[in-house]
Write a protein that binds this DNA or RNA. Structure first.
Lengths: 133, 133
DNA sequence: ATCAATGCAAAGTCTTTGCAATAGG
DNA sequence: CCTATTGCAAAGACTTTGCATTGAT
């Protein structure tokens, strides 16, 4: 159901968007991407970000990270299985390594778990430090 | 900063909304609440659902359940700590008992986890049964 | 020279708000 | 009666789409 792979073109906009996502090392929302990428491409339009993100998701460069109610975020794909930590103070979302596969044992009888997501919330290092001293 | 507790009134609309949430035994989205509650109160407006949900959140009757990207859902509060299972086939979200507190050990050094969410995805009992036979 | 990609503005969604009418206490 | 609540419609916030123009190849 998927036509030709569509030939992409390298544009300043998409390069900036890609760079922002790679540099961030954490999931970014469209608004965050726009803000960061605009530093390199002034006048960058929000629609362009949405379209670029859609294209990058399609090509598999990005993966959606859907954090609780908040705006959908995107991160560079292929970083392997991992989870996230959201800081309740600064609102940023960070990647965490490691996993606790046993969580799938929580599934009720008859249910078939195929994958899982773990999200911790609290204070990130910076905010934790800032408050405690 | 919170004025008087505000006196609530018992209306057919809110009763229907409350009943829908209690009967469902699982987190419902605003759209789901509207659909279910309309069976009892025809002409129920979506704005009323939003306002009722907001009021119920404020009084602590409901808790928001923010499942990955999808619409925010709400469930009756006070059922104790638990997690959720989302069926990728029928889209419903179920409650799961139990917990794996060790997940908080995943937090990076310096980070202070305060709470966590675990979401399993896969097939619910009905969908799993339906497919395997 | 092509046509993918862009920027702007219009169009959609979903959620919130304004307001006159309704109805609970 | 008083005013919280409702339903409708208008207003917002966020995302998608249409289209003429730009720019990568």
């Amino acid at each position: 159901m998927k036509g030709a792979p569509v030939q992409r073109r390298r544009t300043r906009q998409r390069a900036a968007i890609r760079a922002a996502l790679e540099a961030a090392r954490r999931p970014l929302s469209v608004a965050e991407i726009l803000e960061l990428a605009r530093r390199q491409v002034r006048g960058l339009g929000i629609a362009t970000v949405y379209r670029a993100v859609a294209a990058m998701l399609e090509e598999g460069f990005l993966t959606p990270v859907e954090i609780s109610g908040e705006a959908l975020r995107y991160e560079v794909a292929g970083r392997g299985h991992h989870h996230h930590f959201r800081c309740r103070r600064c609102g940023r979302v960070f990647e965490m390594e490691g996993c606790v596969p046993e969580v799938e044992l929580l599934a009720p009888p008859g249910f078939l778990p195929e994958c899982h997501e773990i999200l911790l919330s609290g204070l990130c290092r910076e905010c934790n430090k800032g408050l405690s001293r």
